[in-house]
Design a protein around this nucleic acid. Structure first.
Lengths: 259, 259
DNA sequence: CGGTGTCTTGACATTTCTCAAGTTGGGTGG
DNA sequence: CCACCCAACTTGAGAAATGTCAAGACACCG
């Protein structure tokens, strides 16, 4: 029975590996044994619907979640029902590694699109902490990267006007999609609703709409049927004051980007 | 020589322990040996002047810094010279544990007041990672707490209007000072300039001034000669939509707060 | 083919910013 | 001890950015 579920997991993990392991290897090279270990750590892969809650604020999840396919997002509601989107999770991103050391979620996580989510039991992660120090570095590292991204998001919403905020976010999304190999010619699938974009940059949907129109009319981007194309990356980055330093890209990735 | 500097350090560390070790012990109880280890990890205690830079963006520090006395702050400049203050560091806070795994600072750290800063060499931290797993949990934990605080700051600046932002920040500062035992009757020393407060909540100094006046005239706070008193904590917290859950306080601390 | 969610537009309200001019207060040199 | 000075704080008036409300257009889905 245990064996069976292992086997099931194995067929799915190929996908987990593609994204998550790839991400980790931006930090350290993993041995085959370590990859295998991560593979077998996944006990389940859930298919969740758009909008479904994956982790709820205040709860204590029993598993750590990794996005395999689709988009998820971190969010928090303020009192009058205003939602702040605190981060987007792309394939390969971990949602809640904090929970191995903290006793409750301080935010919620939900699916922004239909998604596949891999689950790893907390105890497995704890075992890794004890016995596979390089891998625990990797978890710590990935958490530090999300902290750095969050910090830049904070700066974005704190000092920049609405149009630059949106532009900055789009630049980041482009780079992160490039890293994941999900772009063609600076264009990629952006499943966000204008309202979902708004909640990440802290402006009104109506205003987001007008900002996007301006970016389009100035021919920095085109956005149609959820496909975003960056038409003039140079100019967009400059306009947004975007510098990818905070993403802590490895040399290898920086090279990949410049192609 | 080495021995001498150790001895020097030892006299100073009593302070380090008071704050930093205390903080850590909010997470796990440390053995005497572990406390000793942390003590001896400090190779130097610097006295820095107000405004002095401790870590600079893009650089790679050789030491991790811990605030012993005074306030420090994390910040980033946007292009037109706008500064975003990304966090305040109180005694006991670590400034740059990230640097053990990332290759450059993605933000700067400076002193907001005259301060004493303890330095721990990177290699020492790395040794701890390898040989003292519980202590490395503690470092990881403290980094997760700052991430959670940052997340709440993000929410604050993303969904709340100016007056609530300021109120929320003041609530947080009160709690953090209470934890550090730095309050008397809900009042404490707030060394911030109105401009420094402004850069943390993303509004103009002029506007901050008016917001503070409103909070004063509504008798929620009083603020004079850098001494902040929360006159009606209940009301201020409600107004700010403040809930300390994101600070991940231990039961023990929550009890302490309710006195 | 109808319906619901998303996008778009316009007109107006509100919040926050900008600029510019005081005012206050603590610190320093004479 | 005084006089001055500079940084921080305050105030006012008008400008700019962003929000609100309401209605219509569009587009995808069942």
């Amino acid at each position: 029975m245990l064996r069976a579920s292992r086997a099931m997991a194995t067929t799915k993990e190929a996908k987990l590996i593609d994204a998550f392991i790839n991400t980790i290897e931006n930090f350290i090279q993993l041995s085959d044994a370590e990859k295998q270990l991560l593979q077998s750590a996944v006990t389940r892969v859930d298919e969740v619907k758009k909008g479904q809650v994956i982790n709820c604020e205040e709860e204590r999840p029993s598993h750590v979640h990794v996005v395999v396919e689709g988009w998820a997002y971190r969010y928090k509601y303020a009192e009058q029902g205003d939602r702040a989107i605190v981060g987007y999770l792309l394939p390969g991103d971990m949602s809640d590694i904090h929970i191995t050391l903290l006793d409750h979620m301080d935010h919620s996580v939900g699916a922004l699109t239909p998604a596949k989510i891999a689950l790893i039991p907390l105890e497995t992660i704890r075992e890794i902490y004890e016995n596979h120090i390089p891998l625990s570095y990797a978890f710590f590292w990935s958490s530090l990267i999300s902290e750095s991204i969050l910090r830049e998001w904070f700066v974005n919403n704190t000092v920049r006007p609405a149009d630059k905020r949106v532009a900055h976010l789009l630049c980041e999304m482009l780079v992160r999609h490039q890293l994941a190999g999900l772009t063609h010619d600076n264009s990629f699938h952006l499943p966000l609703t204008q309202a979902e974009l708004s909640d990440a940059v802290g402006i009104t949907p109506v205003h987001t709409n007008r900002v996007l129109q301006r970016l389009r009319s100035e021919e920095m981007i085109s956005l149609d049927k959820k496909r975003l194309a960056i038409l003039d990356l140079e100019r967009l980055m400059q306009f947004a004051e975007f510098s990818p330093s905070y993403l802590h890209l490895s040399e290898a990735y920086l090279r990949r980007l410049s192609n």
